[in-house]
Simulated assay, not measured.
Amino acid sequence: MSSSSKAFQWLSLVGIIWLQSINGTNTTFPAYSSQLKNSLSMSQIQINNLVFASDAGKLFGWFSGIAAIYLPLWLVLVIGSLLGLIGYGVQFLFVTNLISSPAYWQIFLLTMVAGNSVCWINTVCYVVSIRNFPLHQQVAVGLTTSYQGLSAKIYTDIVSAAFSSSPHKRAHAYLLLNSLLPLLVCAVVAPLVRNIDVGTGEPRNMATGFNLIFVITIATGIYAVITSLGL
């Protein structure tokens, strides 16, 4: 494998880590659910059903798998980010009164679309991990997927640092970030999520590279937990 291919192989892994780090948009639902409930006069049962709606969207995640067979991976990534833009973006317009209040079934459908968007990005991450690291695919998939646990922390820190402390403004900020941040990251990472000709045999220094990323991952996780506890 050439040096350029090896570089792109590791860059693709870094790109996947970035994608997974911002792909847990559904984890921020508790942060804006109260505002959604008040703005649209929902009952608690309806709010609870929206949690299911997000998961129900993932029941249609197989669409992304089929798309990955016939479409370029960058396009699958773009479709996923656009679904998130629609699902969360329209809800943002609702709660900020930029468009008229919707019917409950419309919010339910938008939440399903937003939940489904996660599957498209995940599919790209899994496919690239498996194809670009055929001899270490289990490690690559497990390592990159673990970064999805940072999503809530990343979104919370951005909202805390960049937006008003008002509960209403913060709720709006979460929806805005959910719609835009994955789109921006996907646009940056799209050139990296491609199949790399890795050849055959065990590449040199592969174990060293993974060990380094493991150390970074563990340190990042510890830091995230400590700062979340306010220590």
Rank of each mutant, 00 (worst) to 15 (best):
N49S: 13
N211C: 10
W10V: 03
T200H: 14
A190V: 01
A67L: 11
W62S: 14
F94S: 12
I107A: 12
L73N: 08
Q46W: 00
D197Q: 13
K6A: 14
A68R: 06
Q91H: 07
L73H: 10
K58V: 12
L36G: 09
N48L: 09
I47Y: 10
S117F: 03
V51T: 11
G24Y: 02
V127S: 04
G87V: 04
A187T: 12
W120R: 09
N23Y: 08
P134V: 00
W120Y: 07
H172Q: 15
S100A: 13
L181D: 03
A67D: 00
N23M: 11
Y126N: 15
L85T: 12
T200D: 13
G15S: 01
M42W: 07
F60L: 15
L110K: 02
S151H: 09
A31L: 09
V14D: 02
V51Y: 15
A7T: 15
V215H: 07
S160K: 13
F214P: 05
L177Y: 11
S117L: 05
G230H: 02
F210E: 07
F210D: 09
I213Q: 06
A219W: 11
N97D: 14
G201Q: 04
A53P: 00
S160G: 03
V90K: 00
Q91G: 05
S166Y: 08
A53N: 01
L11I: 08
L13R: 09
S100R: 01
D55W: 15
S101L: 08
I158K: 03
A173Y: 07
V51F: 15
W105F: 09
G201H: 05
A114F: 06
V189A: 01
Q9L: 03
G84P: 12
L93C: 13
T96I: 04
D197C: 05
L176W: 14
A190N: 05
W62E: 09
E202G: 03
N178T: 03
N122M: 10
A114R: 06
L175C: 00
A68Y: 01
L181Y: 02
L83W: 08
N178G: 10
L177G: 12
L40G: 10
I218D: 08
Q46N: 04
N211T: 10
F163W: 07
W18A: 13
L73I: 14
N38H: 15
V78M: 12
K37L: 09
Y104T: 00
Q35N: 14
Y70I: 07
N97Y: 10
S34D: 14
F92H: 11
L176C: 06
F92R: 12
N116P: 06
L85Q: 13
